[in-house]
Design a protein around this nucleic acid. Structure first.
Ligand SMILES: NC(=O)c1ccc[n+]([C@@H]2O[C@H](COP(=O)([O-])OP(=O)(O)OC[C@H]3O[C@@H](n4cnc5c(N)ncnc54)[C@H](O)[C@@H]3O)[C@@H](O)[C@H]2O)c1
Ligand SMILES: NC(=O)c1ccc[n+]([C@@H]2O[C@H](COP(=O)([O-])OP(=O)(O)OC[C@H]3O[C@@H](n4cnc5c(N)ncnc54)[C@H](O)[C@@H]3O)[C@@H](O)[C@H]2O)c1
Lengths: 215, 215
DNA sequence: AAGGGTTTGTGCTCACAATTACAAACTTCG
DNA sequence: CGAAGTTTGTAATTGTGAGCACAAACCCTT
């Protein structure tokens, strides 16, 4: 059975909410409550989950721990994922310093750059290596995912190189319509595109008058 | 007429490709070529554009400059957009230093933080101000969009404050399911969610053997 | 143990978005 | 100028996903 990609995209949302609930000490949650928290209809959640099995109990809801485990298994989050960062500029350094990846099992194990200024630099117990050594390094210690944070004009080349090294997942921050062969999975992070579609909705309605924020 | 949000989300892609073509000195482009570049079917592009008018010429294609102008007008990109950044940490500084916003008409005109270390600091000709002054500052000089780059636990509060200040667009980098009232438009940037759905596809197919990258 | 209250899982319906297909309009070239 | 070749815009069709509604299953209280 083929599962709709939109469904897959929603599952991580569910895991995140379930993690919160777990931290709050909750044992059980209904699709109703989960939906309210996430801004999704309860029916949508139940339908999504039903693609993979029957995880709930009627009259009760879902066991938080159990559903979390199931979703981790389904999404492949029950293991570590090795990642390589290419481009250690302003954004690249923020990504390297980001504490949000490792708790979810994503580890940046290599960092590459083309600039002599950056190569050899130590950032967070990681030595920045020369992009030209990318193939050699990754052939010895493969990674699952490549994070691309180089200027737009070099991004497609970097992606091609990563693909040649057997990387099957690309997280691309560069503002280009990148091309990857079948079997390679590409996700784009595009704040500018997000803003440019948002303005469509902002432009019509007027900026509201602000009730003076005194005191 | 109500235009499907997916259509609006694709328009910025078109503008970006058209800008490239313009730089390349091209006068005219067909939906065919545009589609190939973007990985979208030509019919999809024609259908999307037809929501807004008839911009092409049969047997010829679209005038690059004209279509670009039309799309800019449609999306509200024919003006400047004022933005405020909240959270000048690792990511926030990368955002402040990003050169990709202003060419598209997006200007960060204020930056706020809560930490005494950051407040008063000058970054790119911008003085970081105290979050507690956010309402006062924005009531005098309103912004259109708020960029949220604070830790997850403070994000909803920051968003609520921004909304109270009349901000109608939020670009949220914090990993939470934020809630905003009707009329406020929220876009999320979520690399971790992107990775967590990607692994669903990566987990099944095996890591390919690498054809030794010698020489 | 029985009944009232919850909540799941899913068949069904409806809405909408993608694709197809083609006439009409334009270009180019002989 | 006419014919062959392009390409648009859109009507019609297909495909797909979201929401509804309800039977079945379970909890809890008395
Ligand atoms: N900074 C942001 O907030 C932000 C936001 C969205 C997107 N982006 C995108 O991310 C990318 C990087 O942005 P940035 O602000 O960090 O730019 P930057 O100029 O600070 O960093 C780019 C880095 O890439 C390196 N580089 C160049 N060519 C390379 C190659 N072939 N291989 C390896 N490294 C190479 C450079 O040496 C530099 O260190 C750009 O495409 C940008 O559009 C940045
Ligand atoms: N760094 C990344 O690549 C990255 C990627 C994705 C998402 N994020 C998210 O972006 C946010 C920031 O990440 P970061 O790595 O820059 O963290 P960081 O700790 O470096 O920066 C957070 C900043 O926010 C400030 N702050 C805290 N509370 C505030 C408040 N109420 N008002 C104003 N400022 C406040 C802090 O003083 C600090 O300067 C986090 O939510 C993180 O999950 C970061």
């Amino acid at each position: 059975m083929e599962i709709p990609p939109v469904v897959i995209d929603r599952l991580p949302l569910y895991t995140r909410a379930l993690s919160s609930l777990q931290t709050e000490g909750r044992d059980v949650v209904s699709s109703q409550e989960l939906g309210t928290r996430l801004g999704v209809t309860p029916a949508q959640i139940r339908k999504d989950l039903s693609y993979f099995g029957r995880f709930g109990k009627q009259g009760r809801g879902y066991n938080v721990q159990k559903l979390l485990d199931e979703l981790h298994r389904i999404l492949g989050l029950d293991r570590q994922w090795r990642m390589a960062l290419v481009g250690v500029g302003k954004l690249g350094r923020a990504i390297l310093g980001y504490e949000g990846f490792s708790p979810q099992g994503f580890r940046i194990v290599e960092a590459f750059d083309a600039s002599p200024d950056r190569i050899g630099q130590r950032i967070n117990s990681l030595i920045v290596k020369d992009t030209r050594d990318l193939e050699n390094v990754l052939s010895k210690a493969p990674v699952d995912v490549g994070i691309v944070a180089v200027p737009a004009e070099f991004a497609q080349d970097v992606i091609d190189t990563l693909v040649k090294c057997g990387v099957r997942g690309i997280l691309n921050y560069a503002p280009i319509a990148a091309h990857v062969p079948d079997g390679v999975h590409l996700k784009r992070i595009e704040p500018v595109l997000a803003l440019q579609s948002m303005t469509y909705y902002l432009k019509s309605s007027p900026r509201p008058t602000i009730t003076a924020a005194r005191g």
